[in-house]
Design a binder for these strands. Structure first.
Lengths: 189, 189
DNA sequence: CGGAATCTTGAAAGTGTTCAAATCAAGTGG
DNA sequence: CCACTTGATTTGAACACTTTCAAGATTCCG
């Protein structure tokens, strides 16, 4: 359960075993079966989740009942509803598992505490935030400037691991187009 | 020049005068006339900019020569190309002033140093990052799920100060639609 | 005042959506 | 392991929305 996190931290930082023992104590393991929820609309989000196995998604359901996927999170990614965490308001989103998954949860409070105790963890988070923001910037750019086909090509290029693991209609939803449109785009490539 | 920053920090944190004197030393003041660049495509971005007066925008220019606006930054906002800062690659974007503006610049390195010296500054940045990410999450959601009209209404609701200060065609660009479409949407409201 | 930029409006073309039906694939229970 | 059900993908045709191009009106600023 903790191996993926250890591997991940070793790759990204020069964390030692001692520090990792501290880090470990802050996380709560959780398993989810496919289709189970980590967060449901109306809940207040109070954890950051690190995905050690499987893949999850963050999405909203619009008035017509269709899903809009904001984020996918495979192994070594973090997922949560930051809007809800920051504002402490009930979430407008859902998070569920697309495969049987294993997570490590940490509360925002413990996250801050851990960052102040373990320096490399703090540095990593800072770095992650920057990357996260950079990725969002890129995605916003794609959403407002690219055609449907360009959006798909960029997605395949950026996240090949995800393309092969999630149903096509979910990728369409992530890209903001109908499943039919994505199907047609793929057929003419 | 530093007054806006002081006011801003006092509002958001419980910073004291002593700490603010330290904070001040890390920032480089800079004035920009309307239409002047803070960053041009091809430059490597090496500062975060705090806007103390005026308003700037971050945008790309696509192959056809049209502008896609990623972000507006009026007073008390931060602006930079995080992609370029994180990757240390030349930026694909431009930042320029839409009005005569005054900025306070800080390098990423000094930013980290300042955060480690002044605790409230560090806490503020952490909070800002969370909010920044939450705002991006919201914008991505709007971009993939809303119609053109809904996008505009949400924008007016969220950023009324900006609507009244920037040309309409730039708002269209920010929302990912043509200026004509925005004009028509407005005329039927 | 005059020029430049901005905004509006119309018509035609293009892109993507919707709805419906057919095909294909996967998972489940007997 | 097969038959069946359910979900996913593909395809077609009609429709809706947005863009493009072009021209005219309006506003802004030197």
């Amino acid at each position: 359960m903790y191996q993926t996190l250890y591997k991940y931290l070793k790759e990204k930082t020069d964390i030692g075993e001692r520090d990792f023992e501290i880090v470990k104590t802050y996380f709560i393991p959780k398993k989810l079966r496919k289709k189970q929820y980590l967060l449901q609309e109306g809940d207040i989000c109070d954890h950051f989740a690190f995905v050690s196995k499987g893949i999850l998604r963050l999405y909203s359901i619009d008035p017509k009942g269709s899903e809009n996927i904001i984020q996918f999170a495979p192994e070594e990614w973090w997922i949560s509803d930051r809007e809800s965490i920051v504002s402490r308001n009930p979430s407008k989103y859902n998070i569920d598992a697309l495969e049987d998954s294993e997570l490590l949860l940490i509360t925002p409070k413990n996250h801050r505490e851990l960052a102040s105790r373990v320096k490399v963890f703090d540095e990593l988070q800072e770095n992650l935030n920057q990357r996260h923001i950079a990725a969002h910037q890129k995605r916003i750019h794609a959403a407002i400037s690219y055609s449907a086909e360009e959006k798909y090509l960029e997605f395949v290029d950026t996240y090949p691991q995800i393309v092969s693991r999630v149903p096509q209609h979910m990728i369409a939803s992530y890209l903001g187009m109908s499943p039919e449109t994505l199907s047609r785009i793929r057929s003419r490539i």
